[in-house]
């Protein structure tokens, strides 16, 4: 038990020790033309509605589900506005936390928590924009969460250990987020030039920063998974992450109330 706590403290302290100034993947206000902004909003609204429906269903089934969504929401909010300096690139960027969220609460609810995080950042932290909120939800919430979730499930089905699957989930969800941002920018801004050429150029510009950061996000995701597996494995079973019967017996909470 102490080992799990120590691992978590180490990861958390490392994560908190790294922030510097700068911002990251968010598409800023006014960059997307209105028709593209509207398209991404329409897609985002569909997924947010799907996630809210899932939240109602799952909360009614499992009493611990709401605090879990609250914890993950807070983590995604803090992680996605935490710039991390990448020495080999000389720039800063942030992890997203949506891979970890997708493993624990599922991809649709990850879209919901990402939407809340991105909305708060656009309103109060000059991070992203209100007109580009739909685009940012699609890249961070939808692309990041669904890719991470699919990678985790496929890796487990292929026989990989949970830690390796969680690592791959975190890494690919980060890269998918930035690939989706590149797609959104290229599709809206390529003009008369080739879409593919612009998509590749934007993706290549993200590469020096995101390649190491994606690996870092994979390590953090695996660390969080390990912490929960050691400290309270029944949570993973009841969340459907591990395919076993849910043995959870309601526990007395330790003074948070």
């Amino acid at each position: 038990m102490a080992k799990g706590r120590t691992d978590f403290l180490l990861l958390l302290t490392l994560a908190l020790a790294l922030p510097s100034t700068g911002q990251a993947m968010h598409i800023s206000e006014g960059i997307l033309p209105p028709k593209w902004a509207a398209l991404w909003y329409a897609i985002a609204i569909f997924f947010v509605a799907w996630g809210l429906r899932d939240l109602r269903v799952k909360s009614a089934r499992e009493p611990f589900f709401k605090p879990m969504v609250g914890l993950i929401g807070a983590a995604v909010f803090v992680i996605s506005c935490m710039p991390i300096p990448v020495p080999i690139a000389g720039t800063c960027s942030h992890p997203c936390g949506t891979g970890m969220a997708a493993i624990l609460i599922g991809p649709t609810l990850s879209v919901v928590v990402s939407s809340v995080a991105l909305l708060l950042q656009a309103l109060f932290l000059a991070h992203g924009g209100l007109t580009t909120l739909g685009g940012n939800i699609v890249s961070m919430g939808i692309a990041g969460a669904f890719t991470g979730w699919a990678v985790f499930r496929l890796s487990r089905r292929a026989g990989l250990s949970p830690w390796a699957a969680a690592f791959l989930c975190g890494m690919f969800s980060d890269w998918a987020t930035y690939a989706a941002t590149s797609f959104e920018l290229a599709s809206a801004l390529h003009g008369n030039s080739s879409f593919l050429h612009m998509f590749a150029a934007i993706g290549a510009s993200f590469l020096p920063t995101q390649l190491p950061l994606g690996i870092f996000e994979g390590v953090v995701t695996a660390g969080v998974y390990r912490f929960i597996a050691v400290r309270r494995p029944s949570l993973l079973e009841c969340l459907g992450v591990e395919a076993r019967r849910c043995p959870l017996v309601p526990q007395k909470t330790g003074g948070a109330k």
């Binding site: 993947m25 300096p85 000389g90 720039t91 800063c92 960027s93 934007i202 993200f206």
Partner: peptide
């Protein structure tokens, strides 16, 4: 490095 965010050195520059 100047430690600018990638939204500044990539997204805003390309836009």
């Amino acid at each position: 490095g100047n430690w600018a965010g990638v939204d500044e050195v990539v997204v805003e520059k390309i836009a």
